[in-house]
Design a binder for these strands. Structure first.
Length: 111
DNA sequence: ATTGTGACGTTGC
DNA sequence: TGCAACGCCACAA
């Protein structure tokens, strides 16, 4: 297969471990992977997540501001927001409210 | 190898 | 976090 799986795999692994009702940022995941400056790659990996057999809760992954920047890539327009709201997360205008409360830091919870 | 690009982040204003 | 610009890494063509 691909060697890059390693990098992507890590991203998917962390993303899948995001607890219910929690969200994280690309940078946080990237940091956990050891590539803080590769936050964009994390998002790119998510784009590839569609090709992955394992479903990745990309809707739980947002940018540092808690803005649903990636909702644009979802099936529907508000699908991502609906999923987050379904988990109890308040989302207004693609912006997660109480981000600090729902934020999940992989580097702290995970290791 | 080179270029382009991207679901970001940080710094500057 | 209001907007602009740079940087940064990994991958595709």
């Amino acid at each position: 297969m691909k060697k890059s799986e390693n990098f992507f795999e890590k991203v998917y692994d962390v993303a899948r471990q995001i607890p219910f009702g929690r969200v994280t940022s690309y940078g946080a995941i990237a940091k956990h992977l050891g590539a803080v400056r590769s936050a964009r790659m994390v998002g790119w990996a998510m784009n590839n997540s569609h090709n992955q057999e394992i479903e990745v809760p990309a809707h739980r992954v947002v940018n540092r501001k808690g803005l649903l920047t990636g909702k644009h890539h979802f099936d529907g327009t508000n699908l991502m927001q609906q999923l987050l709201e379904n988990e109890g997360i308040v989302v207004i205008d693609n912006q997660i409210q109480d981000l600090d409360k729902v934020f999940w830091n992989p580097s702290e919870e995970l290791k």
